[in-house]
Design a binder for these strands. Structure first.
Length: 642
RNA sequence: GCUGCCGUAGCUCAGCGGUAGAGCACCUCCUUGGUAAGGAGGAGGUCACGGGUUCAAGCCCCGUCGGCAGCUCCA
């Protein structure tokens, strides 16, 4: 073989001689592209244009202005960071220093962890080196010469890694910045240290050589870099805004939930948080009713035998809680599916009953390592808006489409846009025949096509028991949250020996669809807190309106209006404190309550309310009945605006 | 779980070897004031817990618990 077949992003392919470089490929495509190319992805891996092509593969070229060019800037910033660290800490050993979605990091072995002061000095040194503008120069050598070079530089860990690279037989490249810095690196990089327009060191933390906790402890320096100061600033502001919206902070400020030593990883829900909870359940329940689901409830504690049968004991034991009583062992459920299967089995099912849709707001417990707990986003006990649909194989597509509709509707009501969809297909290690996998994957892809939405395929990322769809929401800060999921399962019906009687009066195996829309209610509330920055739409707001009597002369009127509002199904409070109106307004704003209703003697006399919407100006006095009806309507319609 | 940092009044934090402080919140009193903090007084802490060093320990050391950040987006 003397040629390699190179596939371009548009699906076209061209043949180039073996050992051509990516730059040669770019030149073949066009001179303009060759000129603007700064790097490329070869088979998904970031590569320099000098990369040699040693076999067939796919290429995607990164040009100067393209969004991916930021990877070069960040990767180069990582080198600049390492250069600064070596300058200040000559004994430091270099680990890896890649670009990431948010910025870059570089790992070092140093005697003492970096202090905030060190980070400041490192950043200052980086600016100094950047000002010198040393160019990045690529040097290629064979592995033997590379080993010698690494020994000369004293890079022990890199030398260790080189041994692995040798096995692949690639040419080894170094990127050298004058006499100040040299690093073994596949590239690509920007032209020089001076060509990193904007960067910032952010933090330091612990890490391990190659992620192995039993291995060498390292210090990781995190930073970020952007093509312009303006973009860097915007990014830092976004990070700052996210910090302000942190649901852990807002959760206690707004009295929604709390965490305590007495139950690490388990939220305590306060009355305000329970309102959110109930509203979300109501929303989902309405949809369940409309779509012919039946809601069930299954036990939290089930015997070990069940979990052996379901396979959880073999695959999920480390995440499960166990209890012993009367010499029997029980497990607290980490998932709701086995319970649903038991309910399915309580009757002989006919094909006429299918699809049988069993929904459950099921509380599950999953043991998580203490270090990964994170507010409501990662807890040890939570409630899923779970459902299990039992159907015949040819009903899969219709059922999936129904789930997609429900998902879209619920997300829209919550104020999120169209989710990103990922289709994960059969993994190498799987259960079930290829025939049924073909059918299942086809059904999911078919449902998505018929539904008319874009999706991304993730080959081999499916569960061993079936393919799945995952849904990523984007919040108001542009962050992604994986919430919904639709998973096909051929294994569970098998393990629980589930059957239905078909029209042929023979017994058949149903297919099971696991699906969740919100995923974890607890986590979804955390996402909503951050999405809305605590300023919930009326229907979700724990307190929808606050009545503010100007003096206690109008307290009786305020109480009377509050009673009428409660009768209309609204959640209201009266600020009965002996405070001036300014203080009451201020505190009401702090509580992020949608409507502040001022009632003084004028209002009491006229039967009106002075409406001050959250984030707005005084709308003046309006008839109380009108105001109540307006808020009630917004509540009932789940309006997103005030 | 591992590494680093942190744990003082309900909350946010100061104090860093010599017998516990502020602001906010809370309670009482005065004030009855129209759209982002009216005034005065009061109560509230075995300084996470357990050991140790010291004449003396929130303050130093060790351990435990809890919290925060990070922990294979691989040259």
């Amino acid at each position: 073989m003397t040629v390699a077949r190179v596939t371009l992003p548009d699906g076209k392919a061209l043949e180039v001689p073996l050992n051509s470089t990516c730059a040669d490929v770019a030149a073949r495509i066009g001179p303009r592209l060759a000129k603007d190319a700064v790097g490329c992805f070869w088979n998904g891996e970031l590569c320099a244009m000098e990369q040699r092509i040693t076999g067939d593969g796919q290429i995607r070229i990164i040009t100067k202005g393209s969004p991916d060019a930021i990877l070069l800037i960040r990767h180069s910033a990582a080198h600049l960071c390492a250069a600064a660290v070596l300058d200040l800490f000559p004994d430091a050993q270099l680990g890896f220093g890649p670009p990431t979605a948010e910025g870059f990091y570089y790992d070092f072995v140093v005697k003492e962890p970096f202090t905030p002061d060190d980070l400041g000095r490192i950043e200052a040194k980086m600016r100094e080196l950047a000002a010198q503008g040393l160019p990045f120069e690529r040097k290629e050598m064979d592995p033997a010469a590379a080993g010698k070079e690494l020994r000369r530089l004293g890079y022990k860990l890199k030398a260790e890694y080189l041994e692995e690279l040798k096995l692949k037989g690639d040419v080894i490249s170094f990127y050298v910045n004058g006499d100040r810095f040299s690093d073994m690196c596949r590239g690509p990089h920007v032209a020089s240290f001076g060509a990193i327009p904007a960067f910032k060191i952010l933090s330091a933390s612990g890490a391990y050589w190659r992620g192995d906790a039993s291995g060498i402890a390292m210090q990781r320096i995190h930073g970020t870099a952007f093509p312009s100061e303006a973009e860097l600033k915007k990014h830092l502001e976004l990070v700052e805004e996210a910090k302000k919206r942190d649901h852990r902070k807002l959760g206690s400020e707004l009295d929604l939930f709390s965490f305590h030593e007495e139950a690490p990883g388990f939220p305590f829900w306060h009355a305000g948080g329970v309102v959110l909870w109930r509203e979300l359940e109501n929303l989902v329940r309405e949809e369940l009713m409309a779509r012919g689901y039946r809601e069930v409830r299954t036990p939290l504690v089930l015997t070990d035998e069940l979990w052996h049968r379901s396979g959880h004991f073999d695959h999920y034991r480390d995440n499960m809680y166990f209890v012993e009583k009367e010499e029997r062992s029980f497990a607290v459920k980490p998932m709701n599916c086995p319970g649903a299967c038991i309910v399915y089995r309580t009757a002989m099912r006919s094909y006429k009953e299918l699809p049988l849709r069993l929904a459950e707001f099921g509380m599950v417990h999953r043991y998580e390592l203490s270090g990964v707990l994170h507010g409501l986003f990662r807890v040890r006990g939570f409630v899923q808006d779970d459902a299990h649909v039992y159907c015949m194989p040819d009903q899969i597509e219709a059922e999936v489409i129904d789930c997609l509709d429900m998902l879209e509707k619920v997300y829209k009501v919550l104020g999120f846009g169209v989710p990103e969809i990922k289709l994960s297909t059969r993994p190498p290690d799987r259960m079930g025949s290829d025939e049924i996998w073909d059918k299942a994957e086809g059904a999911l892809a078919g449902a998505l096509r018929n539904w008319g939405k874009q999706y991304r395929e993730a080959p081999q990322e499916g569960n061993f028991y079936g393919p799945k769809l995952d849904f990523d929401l984007t919040d108001s800060l542009g962050r992604k949250w994986q919430c919904g999921t639709i998973q096909l399962d051929f294994q569970m019906p098998e393990r629980f020996d589930l059957e239905y009687v078909g029209s042929d009066s023979a017994r058949h195996r149903p297919v099971m669809i696991h699906r969740a829309i919100l995923g974890s209610l607890d986590r979804m509330i955390g996402v909503l807190v951050e999405h809305y920055a605590g300023k919930f739409p009326v229907w979700l707001a724990p307190t929808q309106a606050l009545l503010l009597p100007v003096t206690d002369k109008t307290l009786p009127y305020a109480r009377d209006v509050a009673a009428r509002m409660r009768e209309a199904g609204l959640r209201v409070d009266v600020d009965e404190r002996n405070e001036k109106i300014g203080a009451k307004i201020r505190d009401g704003i702090g509580r992020k309550i949608p409507y502040l209703l001022v009632v003084g003697e004028r209002e009491a006399a006229a039967g009106t309310l002075s409406v001050r919407p959250r984030d707005g100006e005084d709308r003046g006095a309006l008839p109380a009945a009108e105001v109540i009806e307006d808020i009630r309507k917004r509540h009932a319609s789940r309006a997103l605006d005030l």
